[in-house]
Design a protein around this nucleic acid. Structure first.
Length: 352
DNA sequence: CATCCGTGGTA
DNA sequence: TTACCAAGGAT
């Protein structure tokens, strides 16, 4: 129903005046580098623009091309991704880089892109549209929200997702949109991020306020509706910070899949629902040592549970043989190389 | 299709 | 302090 669509030309005119200047965006009219577009899209999955900003530049400086990323060891990629979360993204990013480097170039259409690891329906459409000007509308959280409000879709997510995807793709039927697909989809992102925001949308300055059905009904801030989320249970862990005579700390590499897969950790117990008594935690220590319980707790929130950790610390006696497994890192280097949950333990040790 | 998978900012 | 949420993907 192109006739029911809001005017793409007005959104693009707004975008041309108010587009955000973001590190991964090419200047207007300049060609887009598929490597940068892909890297930024993966970094931005469930991650804020503010968090990605400095990390994108740093990553690009370390891995300037998809060939450089493909040639890197996993440990380097893991270190560079540390703190960004959702570490399966980094594993898939690395695998994807190797596939693209082997093929010689990025696929230029949605189907080819979607066949690569870590590239799902959203990212395939986004890279195809932004890097190759394919007439596709990727359905991210912004586009879901804008579309649900424009058409006043009251059905809750995630059930409404197929319908929203169809409605959003319909925007591209407007000739003004399909003339500039990459700009149009980024205009939708910017509209959702700066005006059509989740909590208090700035409808008064929205270029699409006229055709917006939710605005007309006064329900914009209530859309899209979402299914309620489950409460997060609390889990407990005990961890062991072992220092050597040089003040370095012992870290271990976690298994390659699952939570924090492939990342470095401070050795510790499994995370379970009941707290650990000292006597039952100590067998999980990485070495025999004069372990001393540090005061305080380290807390961290994961997507589906909360975690409270106690920390034991010890220094390996000079000349003593350390554990055979693990890597010794300087403490400040370790802070940079571990996931945030582990950084909290290092901070707790530093404060004690 | 529901669950698993991180983190930091904000109301 | 709690709860929500951000350019989602894999299983």
């Amino acid at each position: 129903m192109p006739s029911d669509n809001p005017p793409a030309a007005e959104l693009l005119a707004w975008y041309d005046r108010h587009r955000r200047d973001l590190p991964w965006r090419a200047a207007p009219g300049q060609p887009r580098d598929p490597y940068r577009v892909w890297l930024s899209e993966v970094m931005l999955q469930q991650t804020t623009v503010a968090a990605v900003g400095p990390r994108f530049a740093r990553f690009l400086a370390r891995f300037p091309s998809v060939q450089a990323l493909a040639a890197a060891d996993w440990a380097e990629v893991a270190e560079e991704w540390a703190g960004l979360g959702y570490y399966a993204r980094a594993r898939n990013l690395h695998a994807c880089a190797r596939a693209v480097a082997a093929a010689g170039r990025f696929p230029c259409n949605r189907e080819g892109l979607a066949a690569l690891p870590g590239i799902g329906p959203y990212t395939a459409a986004a890279v195809a549209a932004i890097a190759f000007d394919a007439p596709l509308v990727p359905l991210d959280g912004n586009v879901e929200r804008v579309t649900a409000r424009i058409f006043r879709v009251e059905d809750p997510l995630p059930g409404a997702k197929p319908r929203l995807a169809e409605l959003a793709q319909g925007f591209m039927a407007d000739g003004a949109a399909s003339a500039r697909p990459g700009d149009f989809v980024q205009a939708l992102f910017d509209l959702g991020a700066t005006i059509c925001t989740p909590r208090s949308p700035a409808c008064g300055i929205c270029p699409w306020q006229g055709p917006c059905a939710a605005r007309a009904a006064g329900v914009a801030a209530d859309l899209p509706r979402k299914a309620p989320k489950r409460a997060r249970p609390l889990r407990h862990g005990a961890h062991f910070l072992l220092r050597d005579a040089a003040g370095r700390v012992l870290l271990r590499r976690r298994p390659p899949r699952g939570l924090l897969g492939g990342m470095l950790e401070v050795p510790g117990t499994p995370w379970r629902e009941t707290p650990w008594a000292e006597a039952e935690a100590l067998p999980h220590a990485p070495a025999e040592a004069p372990w001393r319980r540090l005061p305080g707790l380290a807390r961290h929130g994961f997507t589906h549970f909360e975690l409270e950790m106690v920390l034991f610390a010890a220094t390996l006696p000079p000349g003593a043989t350390g554990p055979e497994e693990g890597e010794w890192l300087a403490e400040d280097g370790a802070r940079m190389a571990v996931p945030s949950v582990m950084r909290r333990l290092l901070d707790l040790a530093g404060a004690a």
